[in-house]
């Protein structure tokens, strides 16, 4: 079975990491490339960069960041934030991103998923879904866009199915109710989506301890977990999480420190 993935997520704006990262011995805690290298060596399986400013002027800086990351980072990485056209996708893939993550633009224009998958392959089209529980709990979840500011009223589960049919390669599913709370993932959300699509689902939003991550995999059926403050604040390391996942009998990639060639 393919290993469960741990994916650190770095929020960037104007080419710099936005939230501080608590790593010992970093020269420049704001440099996304240095952080990416550190996480890669620490055993991260993939990385995500999210351009939270996603401004028009910041695009050039983002492309340059992707270029520098591709030069030094040897694991796959995804870039998201403000990507709205085939041209935008191409620019980032060309600069060296392995995948792009589409969010608001995919809701506005679902054809972008289809066209992107056709042109560049499903493997590089991630669709990010920001979900919030409807007020009456049994009614499911709404899809939010524009960084969570706008409720589209679209049902998360039917959107996930559509995204899958359109040719996306992966779904990055964020529970807005859980995001930043460290109160645990919305397991019901993850499980419901993972059961209706054949695609890998990345769980995001709410992880506060190792147990939460384990449950996202075992009960939520997630294929990967996106991790932010838990790692950045130094509360847990990738190594500690992997050690515990292994103890639970879950498949993870061992951390590889073998620098020498043979």
């Amino acid at each position: 079975m393919v290993a469960l993935r741990l994916i650190p997520c770095l929020d960037v704006a104007e080419g710099r990491v936005v939230k501080g990262v608590n790593f010992v011995g970093l020269r420049d805690a704001g440099d996304p490339v240095e952080l990416a290298c550190r996480y890669s060596l620490a055993g991260a399986d993939e990385l995500v960069f999210l351009d939270i400013a996603a401004s028009h002027e910041g695009r050039e800086t983002l492309v340059e960041l992707v270029r520098r990351t591709a030069e030094s980072v040897t694991i796959p990485f995804t870039v998201g934030g403000g990507i709205g056209s085939l041209k935008g996708i191409k620019e980032l893939l060309r600069a060296g991103a392995d995948k792009v993550s589409l969010n608001s633009s995919a809701v506005r224009n679902p054809d972008l998923i289809r066209e992107g998958a056709k042109k560049f392959g499903s493997q590089c089209i991630v669709v990010a879904i920001d979900a919030r529980r409807r007020i009456q709990e049994d009614l499911g979840w709404d899809v939010y866009v524009k960084g969570g500011r706008e409720n589209t009223g679209i049902d998360v589960v039917s959107w996930a199915k559509e995204v899958s049919d359109l040719g996306a390669g992966e779904i990055l599913l964020t529970s807005m109710d859980g995001d930043g709370t460290q109160a645990g993932y919305d397991l019901e959300l993850i499980k419901t989506v993972a059961e209706v699509v054949p695609l890998p689902v990345i769980a995001s939003g709410g992880a506060g301890c190792i147990k939460d991550i384990i449950e996202a995999f075992t009960r939520g059926k997630a294929s990967a977990a996106l991790l932010a403050s838990l790692l950045h604040d130094g509360l847990l390391t990738v190594e500690e999480i992997k050690y515990e996942l292994l103890n639970q009998g879950l498949p993870v990639r061992p951390i590889d420190n073998e620098q020498s060639f043979r």
Binding site: M1, V2, A3, L4, R5, D45, S122, Q123, G169, E170, P198, L199, P200, S223, A224, R253
Partner: peptide, 9 residues
């Protein structure tokens, strides 16, 4: 397993 087969093995 999920399809695409995506990740480390």
């Amino acid at each position: 397993e999920r399809i695409p087969h995506m990740g480390w093995a």
